[in-house]
């Protein structure tokens, strides 16, 4: 299975990096940008008997290591093949 994991700063937690990048875009002349957040994108290949099994494994990976639930949200996509 091909897995894509997106980790982003948790909603409501100050994200100074996102704020700095948003300001920089504004300075470059890109107007109308808001709610910018900088996160992490993780891709991996996983051997699993089914898509559901892979999703459960990835969820545990995120909870235990790939994201820190105190400060980060995550979501992922699992694609067979």
């Amino acid at each position: 299975m091909r897995v894509r994991i997106f980790v982003t700063p948790r909603q409501g937690i100050l994200d100074p990096q996102g704020r700095a990048v948003e300001t920089a875009l504004g300075n470059l002349g890109f107007s109308g940008v808001s709610d910018l957040h900088v996160g992490r994108y993780i891709i991996l290949t996983l051997e699993a008997p089914s898509k559901a099994a892979a999703e459960e494994t990835v969820r545990q990976m995120c909870e235990q290591l790939l994201a820190n639930p105190v400060i980060e949200d995550y979501r992922f996509e699992v694609e067979p093949g």
Partner: peptide, 17 residues
Amino acid sequence: LCEAHLLPGALTRNESL
């Protein structure tokens, strides 16, 4: 210690970056 859940909370990028 925070990552190991021996202490509550987390430490993140300084506000000033």
